[in-house]
């Protein structure tokens, strides 16, 4: 007999507390639902669409949909993972994700998710957008080539640091980007600090700490050791 507050995730029974979203309950249970813009410490953004699941046969975002008793949720089906892989391929072609030169390689959520979903190629034509870096801050480097517009830095800076350093702005696939809220538009002219929550929230390699390159060698990093699906509880900080 089912307890009242459970739902089925790929046939597995997942308990939840009332008000929890599907992805919150799954993560608390150690079950992996692929995602990029969701973070357990923050309210959902619902923009990356990677956590799309099928709830009772209909598509929905696991990060925004509240768990309900008796839901039947499909997650890691071939159909959904195929769509997720296509979304990832679009992320990879619309930025400049050159992993061999990236300090975040091996610790990158985008890369680890693409490994998990067996993304072997970008499939689409590359955009190679021109996205200058911002090295104006003494302690932090911003490499916008890798930005996936998850907006976690925007949220962390506003909600935790109380600073509002970042903002989403612009229109269109090449115009939309993260803006810096300073007169010059440069990070060096803000009160951003390396100890800010926003300085350690980036899931990809945009917000990097200067003078901390390759402290852990490639091959021994977080997702080198085990796939992202096997470390749902461990790797979120």
């Amino acid at each position: 007999m089912n307890a009242t507050n459970t739902f089925q995730l790929d046939g597995e029974e997942i308990p939840f507390a009332p008000g929890q979203t599907i992805i919150q309950a799954a993560a608390a249970h150690g079950a992996y639902i692929p995602h990029l813009c969701w973070h357990p410490d923050f309210s959902p953004h619902g923009s990356c669409k990677l956590c799309t699941v099928k709830v009772n046969g209909r598509f929905g975002s696991a990060c925004t949909m509240e768990a309900q008793p008796g839901m039947e949720v499909e997650n890691r089906t071939a159909e959904l993972d195929d769509k997720r892989r296509t979304l990832l391929q679009m992320f990879f072609v619309e930025g400049n994700h050159f992993c061999p030169s990236c300090e975040k390689s091996g610790n990158c959520v985008l890369q680890a998710t693409a490994y998990e979903l067996k993304m072997m190629s970008p499939h689409f034509d590359m955009f190679y957008p021109d996205r200058p870096v911002d090295a104006s801050h003494p302690d932090i480097l911003l490499d916008f080539n890798r930005c996936i517009m998850c907006s976690l830095c925007v949220t962390a800076s506003r909600e935790v640091d109380g600073k509002n350093v970042f903002a989403m702005g612009g229109r269109g696939i090449l115009g939309r980007r993260i803006h810096i809220n300073s007169e010059s538009g440069r990070l060096g002219d803000t009160d951003f600090a390396a100890t800010d929550r926003a300085a350690s929230i980036c899931p990809v390699g945009v917000i990097l700490h200067k003078r901390k390159g390759f402290a852990v060698p490639i091959g021994e990093r977080t997702y080198d050791l085990a796939p992202i699906s096997a470390q749902v509880k461990e790797t979120r900080s």
Binding site: F92, H97, S121, Y128, D130
Partner: peptide, 15 residues
């Protein structure tokens, strides 16, 4: 390899 798949290092001149 990376270069055949996404341009890799040589493609860093693309901007």
């Amino acid at each position: 390899g990376a270069c055949a798949i996404n341009g890799g290092l040589p493609a860093q001149r693309n901007h």
